[in-house]
Amino acid sequence: MRNILLTLGAVTLLWVSSNAQKESFGYLGKKNLISVFTTGNFRVFPAANFGPFDYGNGYETIKYDKNNQVKYGTKVFRYDIRLGYTRLIKKGFGIGAEFGYENYRMTGFTPSNYPFSSYASSPVFNVFSTMLTLNFTGRKQIAPTGFTTTLGIGPKFYVFDKSQNYRIDESTAIGNPYPDYKMDMMGLNLFWELGYRIPIAEFLVIDFGLRFNAGYTFRMSYDLDSGIPFTVPYWTKNDIHNQAAIENATTLMTFKLGFGFML
């Protein structure tokens, strides 16, 4: 699926590039914009309060270091790194692609009725996203600078990070609460962005804006959950899916900040 989208995107961009070549528009004639930026948001809404997990404020993270010592954390700020490419095909319209990466440590607090003295590690995912973007610039702007509106849509892939030291507590022999590791997920995201690009050199812009997001995370199969004792209140696949889906859906607004290189 990912490859198909990438190929389609590349073909589309090549086609529009050849058509845009003869026209004279773009900031100082530059029609290509390569952007490196981050999108993120402050967690103003509690993230996880579902099912049996009815404690905590939803921002907590738990991890164990190399010595199996627990580290409690709070994740109130979430961000990713993104790379974008936009090609202007008309004076106020560009089409492009965007690729994102986020090291996503799922937040949420495990319940207190667990018999062990500590809590299970928060699951970590490497989230890859790819987007097809449509960039609109107002008549009064010289694209790609100034006020822009961008629409984007594309899949999001959650790849479970197996390299983490997952544990239930510091000493329990059970150790890893996610023994099967088959917890990859996929979602579909779309956004609408109100952006502004300020040129700071003839080839460089500061790129910032606000994104309004909506997302859907596809449900996984739960067949492997049966291998984990029901009484152990660490993250089940169902919990993980729900948590990811809720976070995905409730990240309504993110800000964007980065640089763009105009070519």
Partner: peptide, 22 residues
């Protein structure tokens, strides 16, 4: 061109380019 921005050097450049390219 009518725009609600400060006519900073680089902004002006962009707009002048657009004018002259016509």
């Amino acid at each position: 061109h009518f725009f609600t921005r400060r006519p900073r050097k680089l902004v002006l450049k962009g707009y002048v380019y657009d004018l002259i390219s016509q």
